[in-house]
Design a protein around this nucleic acid. Structure first.
Lengths: 189, 189
DNA sequence: GAGGATTTGTACCAATCAGTACAAGTTGTA
DNA sequence: TACAACTTGTACTGATTGGTACAAATCCTC
């Protein structure tokens, strides 16, 4: 038996990866025990609520990361261009240049959407709001909300396209183009 | 027993809906028999290869529709602006204003991506190519390929955002904005 | 060393699963 | 009416499933 240093928090990123790879419904407990290295009993010790609780923990973790690394920096006092570019580089890194999918986006498309409705909605709403407020603060964007929506949806779509074309470089290319546009439109006027 | 008018082709759109709602892996034969109104024996009569063959049939059907209603019109000899606007109205209609997800996109994000790799790839590649060629023909777009990619990925992402925010209107709004931009940029110079 | 906390993985439960086989029932056509 | 084609849904197969229960083993701390 391995050293007892595992905490619930250590398990969550591993769970996330199983759910990304297998999807939520299709991820069996066998696969989860294998991916996490935990026995079934330990899994239920950490997540007495079962798979639902695991998914909830994963969503919390993803959201927490985005709050800290994407939304909060957008709300900082640094120069707007810097904030925007930081968002893109963090997003590109987080999605492993297109090789790692967005779990929240996947859940939004599937049966899980209803079960985690509030959290999924607030994830996207928070992202759009953080970006919108940043753009409004810059004062140079026409229709900041619409632009923010287009950027966030464009990032999600770029993940699909990169996967669909089996070419993660398309993901990165689209994001750089979105970034260039955003920087340009936020400097308008 | 119902009248014997069912053909394989009648069943496919019903299958598509089950897969959209339940996902491929999680869609059980019970649910499929219920949704299609066919007995298990009849299902296997139509699709001896089982669920895989059903998914294949569905993908063929989706692709066929897109070829006929999206890609081919983009390749027609009509005025460019007309072609572009027709694409958007057909896409908005097909995705039921954001209430119906794109199965190819969902498959691209999931385990099915590897199984149906060629077909998923060609779906997106064909779309981008049709749009790119149309833009090139117009002669006014800088970077037609990049723009085409951004539009196709934007449409996919808009589906995620509309679902995620539980507000299909966001889907329609983003698409209209993409359309406006496309029309503007294809009229440049 | 003692003892509480953690971990393991099996037995069990009740259920479901995709696919195979096929007898019985129904439909459609000549 | 006869008969081929189609449809049905059950029995069966071998497998897997999430979750519960828990004895035994191991770890960690005092």
């Amino acid at each position: 038996m391995p050293k007892l240093i595992a905490t619930r928090a250590d398990v969550v990123p591993l769970l996330a990866e199983v759910f990304r790879t297998r999807g939520f419904s299709a991820a069996s407990l066998s696969e989860i025990t294998e991916a996490t290295g935990l026995g079934k009993g330990s899994l239920y010790n950490f997540f007495p609520g079962g798979k639902d609780e695991m998914a909830q923990a994963v969503l919390d973790d993803v959201e927490s990361w985005f709050q800290g690394e994407i939304f909060a920096p957008l709300r900082s006092a640094r120069p707007l261009g810097e904030r925007l570019s930081l968002m893109f580089s963090n997003v590109i890194e987080y999605f492993a240049s297109g090789r790692r999918i967005c779990l929240v986006g996947v859940f939004a498309l599937g049966m899980e959407r209803d079960r985690f409705e509030d959290q999924i909605r607030s994830f996207f709403a928070d992202w759009i709001q953080a970006l919108r407020l940043a753009l409004e603060e810059g004062g140079n964007s026409e229709q900041p909300r619409e632009l923010a929506e287009e950027v966030v949806s464009g990032i999600q779509g770029a993940l699909i396209l990169g996967r669909g074309l089996n070419d993660p470089n398309r993901f990165v290319a689209i994001l750089h183009r979105l970034e260039d546009r955003l920087l340009k439109e936020s400097a308008l006027r």
